Simulated scan of single mutants.
Amino acid sequence: MQSTSPLAPMHMNITAQDLKGNGRLGRYILLPGSDGRAEAMAQRLQNVKVLTHSRRHNFYMGTWQNLDIGVMSSGMGCPSMDIIATELLHQGARRIIRVGTAGSLQPQRLRIGSLVIPTAAVRDEGTSRHYLDPTIPVQASLEFLDAVRRAAAEQKMLDRIFLGITHTKDSLYAREFGEGPMQPEHKRYMEHLHAAGVLASEMECAQLFTLTQVWNQKLLQTESARPAVRSGAILAIIGDDQPFADGDIVKATIEKAMDLGFATIDNWSKNEDRSWL
C-alpha cells in the first residue's frame, strides 16, 4: 500500500490557507470533544465559514474581537486527538486549546461546576507511548498557563479554577467505573491517583501535550524561524461523587469553560511575542 503524504489531511477538509491569520501566528484553535460543542463555540464568532467533513470533524473558521479563530472537534480519546491535532499541526496550527470535560479525582474539594487547568498530564494511555517513552512527562505550555491565569483573574473566576496535574486514560468504563474483570486493579490505581493529589481524569490532554513537545523539537531542528507550538486545556468538571451531573449543570459548566477559553485567547494574543505577528 502506498503511503499518503502527512501534509494532506485525511480527516478534515482544510488546507494550510484556512489556518492562516493573526499575522504569521495563524489561527488560535479551540478543540472541544464533540462537533456539537464546536458548533456552539462557533456561534460566538463573526463571519463564520464551515468546512464540513463526513466524519463530523467540521472546521468552523471566523473572527472574534478581530482575532482569527478556528474551532473543531477532536473526537474522543487520545487516538482521535492524535489524528486531529497532527493534521492541524501539519497545516500550520501553532496555538491550540482543548476545551473539554473531566471527572474530579478530589471530590471532597473539587466539585461539579469547577474548572481545572492541567499543568501536566499522567500518561495512562497508549497513544503517546508511540512518540515518547512512558517515563518522559508532558506538560501544558507555560505561555498558555500564564494567559489562562491572567484571564481568570480578569473574569473574576480565580475562585472557580484549579491548576494541577490531571490524568489521561484510554478506557472510561474500565479504568474509571470498574467495568470488566480487572476492577480491583483499576480501583487501586484510581485511589493511588487520588492519594497523589491528581486533580481530575479525562481522555485527551496527554496526547495534545505530547505532540506539542515532539513538534517543538522538530521545529527547532528544521524550522527554527517559525513560531513554536503552544497548547493547553480548560476542563469543565461534570462528575465528582456522582459520575455525571444533570444536563443543566453540565451545560452551565461547559459554558464557563468556553467563556474562559475565549478570554484566554484574548489575553494570550495581547501578550504574544509581536515579532511573529
Rank of each mutant, 00 (worst) to 15 (best):
A174H: 13
I69A: 04
K251D: 13
I117C: 03
A153H: 08
D124H: 12
R27S: 05
V250S: 00
T127P: 00
A85Q: 12
A257K: 04
N13C: 09
I161K: 07
I237S: 01
G21V: 10
I237L: 14
T135L: 09
I234P: 03
W276M: 11
E191P: 05
E204R: 07
V48M: 12
T101D: 01
V99M: 04
T166F: 06
M10Q: 12
H130E: 11
L199K: 13
G100N: 02
T222K: 14
V71Q: 04
S224L: 13
V50K: 11
L211V: 08
G70Y: 01
S80V: 05
V214M: 12
G164E: 11
N22W: 05
R44K: 14
R188F: 11
A152M: 05
Y131H: 09
V50P: 07
T253R: 04
N271R: 13
Q108G: 03
K169E: 12
P6H: 06
Q2W: 10
A93M: 08
M157A: 11
A196N: 13
R274T: 15
A257F: 08
I83E: 05
V116M: 02
S201T: 15
T119K: 01
R230K: 12
S73L: 03
A233R: 03
A152D: 04
S104R: 02
Q183T: 13
V99P: 00
S114L: 00
K251Q: 10
I165Q: 15
Q221H: 10
Y60L: 07
V48L: 10
D248A: 15
I161A: 02
M81V: 14
K218W: 14
K218Y: 15
W268N: 14
R27L: 09
L277S: 11
Q155K: 10
T4S: 07
L163H: 11
G164V: 05
H186M: 08
A40F: 12
D159E: 15
G21T: 07
M203Y: 07
I136Y: 04
S275D: 11
T127W: 02
Y28R: 02
G21I: 07
G126P: 08
Q108T: 07
A263Q: 11
R175C: 09
N271V: 04
V122Y: 08
L25T: 08
H186F: 08
G75R: 00
I69N: 05
M258W: 08
S73F: 00
I238E: 04
L172G: 04
D159P: 06
T86D: 11
L19K: 03
T15Q: 09
L158P: 04
L193D: 11
S114I: 00
G178D: 09
G36L: 08
R226K: 15
G197S: 12
F144A: 05
L88Y: 03
Q213A: 15
H167V: 14
N271I: 03
F144L: 08
R188P: 06
A245S: 12
A174W: 08
C78P: 01
Q155V: 00
I265D: 09
L158C: 07
M203L: 09
G164P: 13
G92Q: 05
H90Q: 12
N267P: 00
W215K: 06
R175W: 01
S231N: 07
N58Q: 04
